[in-house]
Amino acid sequence: MSLITITEVRKSFGQNEVLKGINLDIEPGEVIAIIGKSGSGKSTLLRCVNGLETIDQGSIVVAGAQLAPDELHLRALRLKVGMIFQGFNLFPHLTAGRNVMLSPMVVKKVSAKEAEAEARVRLEQVGLGHKFDAYPDQLSGGQQQRVAIARALAMKPLALLCDEITSALDPELVNEVLAVVKALAEEGMTLLMVTHEMRFAREVCDRVVFMHQGRVHEIGPPEDVFAHPRTPELKQFLGVA
C-alpha cells in the first residue's frame, strides 16, 4: 500500500493555477526526485504534502492522515512527514542540540533527558555529535542543513520532504549534505525531494518525476527518464534536445 497518496490535486495562487491535477503514489521506502523548471509547481507540490500550502481540489493522504486545513489534521499529518528547507531555518536562539530536542519535548511531551539522548544520536547520525552546544550562526551552511535533517529525524517521521536542500549551499558543502541524504535512503527512509542535483537523482532515486506547467509530465526510473526522455520538454530541460 502507498505511504503517500496524492490524488487530482489542484492549487491556484489567484488566477494562476500552479498545480493542474497531480496524481502520485509513493511506496514506503521509495526515494523520489521531482525535477523541472522553476515555476513548474514542484516546490508547491512538496509544500502541499505537509500542509504549508492548502489545496483547492483533490486529496493528499499520508499513512492514513488526510490533509485538511484545521490544526488537528495538520498536526497528525506533520507527525508523519518531516520537511527540510532550502534556507535551513534552524532556530537561531537555540543550540544545535536544543533545535533537535525542542519539538519532541513540546509536541510529543518527551522528557528532557530522553530528548537529549535522542538528539545526541541524531546529531551523531549526521556527523555532528560534537556540535551539540554550537549555535546555528557558528556552523557552516552544510552543518546547519545537517542539523535541520537531525531535527526532522528526531520526530521519527515516516517520510521526509526535501525542498532544494542544497541550493543555498556553497558547492564544496553540497556533498556532505547529499551523503547524509543518501545514507537515509539506504536505510529505507521514504524521501520526496525537489532537487537540481541530477547526478544525485540518477544515483539515488527510485523514480524521477518531471513536472512541467503544473502537471506530472514524465515519470519513471532514472535510467529511463534521463537516458530516454520521451517529450520535447524534458529533452529541452535535460539539454539533450
Binding site: N50, G51, L52, E71, L74, R75, R78, L79, G82, M83, F85, G87, N89, L90, F91, P92, H93, L102, S103, V106, V107, A148, R151, A152, M155
Partner: peptide, 24 residues
C-alpha cells in the same frame, strides 16, 4: 521560515509563538 520550520515539526500556533517566535 521560522514559522514554516516549526509548523513542519507539528507545533501548534501557541507552541510556535511560545518556543520559537516570541523568544526571538
Amino acid at each position: 521560515g521560522q514559522w514554516e520550520a516549526s509548523s513542519s515539526l507539528a507545533m501548534s500556533f501557541v507552541e510556535q509563538l511560545r518556543y520559537v517566535i516570541l523568544p526571538q
